[in-house]
Amino acid sequence: MKKWLLPMFMMVVLVLAACGNKEDNSKKDEGSIEASSAETITYQSETGPIEVPTHPKRVVVLSSFVGDLLQLGVNVVGVDAWAADNPNFQEDIKNAMVVENTDIEKIIELEPDLIIGLNGIENADKLAEIAPTVLFTYGKVDYLQQFIEIGKVVNKEKEATEWVEDFKARAAEVGTKIKEKIGEDATVTVAEMFNKQLYVYGDNWGRGTEILYQEMGLKMPEKVKEDALKPGYFAISQEVLGEYAGDYVIFSMFKDQGSSVTNAAWFKDLEAVKNGHLFEVNANAFYFNDPKTLEYQLNFFKEKFLQ
């Protein structure tokens, strides 16, 4: 190459290199934009699309859904009082603060990046100013789909769906074994004593009802079906529980209620009690229908019915 061509050749090389660097930098800029946009995802909520963190790190749960988040390994920093009393959760939420939807200042102090609760709560607009707030209507979807919806919110739909499929299979298997032992026509009643008021439950109001009736296909007494199936629960007087009690009774009580109930004449007169077919449960542990509670309920039924 002639000497006079060298400077021109070097200039072309430098220009091409500069163009290449500009293109690389442009690609890097595009990559950072993608990374930035990947910090959030869009969840199609009941009220419309909401931008939520791709990987939420500090979630406040104002009702019902603490166990769903814990099952998915999501850090919960604020919980409702009912969740705080659930022994299935206590180890995982020992550092969480108990809050209500009216505790705006407390919730701000928790610095949540996501808030989850039930529709219709007071201060929903103020909560949405603190962090993306997703609210659900209880019963709008079934209890397992609800878990999948929570999974979508926290970008863990795959994990939630896999758990649901596995749980349904395990519950059905246990249900088959229970029916083989107690008979296809045996009936089961779910009852609860709360504040001196007695309730019986349908098939979608927690307390293990979803497992017993939906997944296992166990039978509900006709009287319970007539009064409690549609509304989900039905209040009765203590003395008429015998009219609603099936061959087996799941009787849920809150702490400090035990002896006052189990020593009562109406309780001792139940056929399920006389036959050893009444299973007492801790209402605080049985209250919800999230995966953590469902696992506890399934193990309880497996132990009590098949022992």
Rank of each mutant, 00 (worst) to 15 (best):
A285P: 02
M8C: 12
G246M: 04
F65K: 03
Y199C: 05
F286Y: 06
K57W: 02
D85T: 11
L270H: 10
D24P: 04
Q257T: 14
K230A: 14
L298C: 07
W82S: 05
D125F: 07
V188A: 10
I107H: 01
T262E: 06
P49F: 12
T54E: 11
V224W: 00
P87I: 14
E109I: 08
A17L: 15
T42D: 11
M253I: 15
G31L: 13
K179W: 06
L212V: 02
A131D: 03
D103Q: 10
E39T: 12
V61M: 09
I250N: 03
A81G: 10
N95Q: 15
P7C: 12
A84R: 06
E243I: 11
F147A: 01
L229F: 07
V61C: 12
M8S: 13
N282T: 07
E46Q: 10
G276L: 14
S37H: 12
K3G: 05
K302T: 11
V261L: 11
L135F: 01
T176F: 07
M11W: 10
S26D: 15
T161S: 15
D24C: 03
G139N: 10
A265H: 08
Y143F: 13
L278F: 00
A84S: 15
K2I: 07
I107C: 05
V13A: 11
E173A: 15
F234E: 05
E165C: 09
S252D: 07
K292T: 02
E271T: 13
V61L: 11
N123P: 05
Y199M: 12
D80H: 07
V281M: 07
